[in-house]
Design a binder for these strands. Sequence first.
RNA 1: GGCGACAUCGCCAAGUGGUAAGGCAGAGGUCUGCAAAAUCUCCAUCCCCAGUUCGAAUCUGGGUGUCGCCUCCA
Length: 463
Amino acid sequence: MKIYNTLTKSKDEFVTNEANKVKMYACGPTVYNYFHIGNARPFVFFDVVRRYLEYKGYEVTYVQNLTDIDDKIINKAIEENTTFKAIAKKYIAAFEEDIEKLGIKKPTHQPKASEVMGDIIKLIKKLVDEGFAYESQGDVYFSVESFKGYGKLSGKNIDDQKAGARVEANTNKKHPADFTLWKTAKPGEPTWGSPWGQGRPGWHTECVVLSQKYLDTESFDIHGGGVDLVFPHHENENAQAEVLSGKKLANYWMHNGFINIEGEKMSKSLNNFFTARDVLKEYNAEAIRFFFLSKHYRSPIDFNRQIMQESDTAVKNFYNALKSVDYLSFKDEDINYSDADLAKKEEFVKAMDDDFNSAKALAVMFDLVKIVKSTKEDINERKESAKLLVELGSVLGFFTDIEAVLSNDLGDLSEKLLAILIEVRNNAKAEKNWPVSDLIRDKLLAQGIQLLDTKDGTKWEKK
RNA sequence: GGCGACAUCGCCAAGUGGUAAGGCAGAGGUCUGCAAAAUCUCCAUCCCCAGUUCGAAUCUGGGUGUCGCCUCCA
């Protein structure tokens, strides 16, 4: 399979460090607020990467950090007149809730920056000791000039940059591009003791420490995150790691594109900020997942009401197809795929192998939907395709709660009452008493029960 | 100013030299008391110009447009 690598700017054949094992890391949230729909894209996407690699037979170790020490958290704590720990705790809980609702599998490890403070300090000290970083007025900076490879990930040439819109006011640095590893304590901030006095770490070190520690290697397979993290965050991560180990922090750097809101960049000033939590109130998790996967992960994607409704309808089509063959009745049976199905499966794998072309993979699923729904096809063919539809959909993270969605279980009593209502309506229908029969149907529909008059009698389903 | 991405039907989107997948929406037919479902049919020459080629949405050059990064924002 091929993966687009930001480091080489090309689709590269994916070769793991260790056979059949993938070690991957993706930057997690800074827990100072509910995460927004834009944050959700990498969370969902790397969940799919993980699921697909597992489907391919790899043993995947997936680490995602939680940044629980940061200016934004401290500011929020001041704003809400509480401690930064309380803020972190609150939003970690919220994060976990939302992630679960989105159907995202828990990473293998999900460590917090604060848990590894000793390791962070140790790493910074090593950088200082070996001459890659220096102390200045209690702050510690990484010297970008000490690493000749600096800029290779983002394609930036540090000496070539325009002085910039923002002039570097910090005269403590040797080079304007030098970045902070440790900042000296300011009043009221949480601090930790270090060789350079009380202070706290910069943002770029935690990911190096957490990834290497929890993946148990200096150089792992995949590092992911949003495009905006390429510079400076990932560039800086790699610099710290490579300068010490002589190896790239990761072999493949994957970056997802941004989400726009109705054509505009999402921002607080435009007031077009949607938290994942709010979006989940209106659309189900699978519609959101479909929305993300309907376009290639590196492309920018526009979030709007119309596209969400379309995504929602599209996902319902998957379920309609499965209902049409009564999927739950045979879900545990062993079913052999036909040659046609195997060809579809191959198509799906080929699409995903090509740098996770999920849009194409979804098209394969719709081909299966067509077969499953088609009353002209042999019922066994339809069942086989349904089975494959679920198999492939699961790889993309759909159908995680398929029984609940497909099940029409209302409890014994409700079902009996419903049967009675249907009988009454059928009597009314027989007498061509349309007002009564329609009244029953409409009232049930308002309660979320859809009646369907079919050749085989009246059936119903939950809407 | 530096670096980079993208431009395919009303909307979303695949396509990487061989004559435009798929989804949503829409139109019409069958079925039907109506509705829903099902089913059949229809619906683009790919931003512009020039070039390479037997042949280009796909390659090259130029233009136009949109967007991102260069500010600890995914």
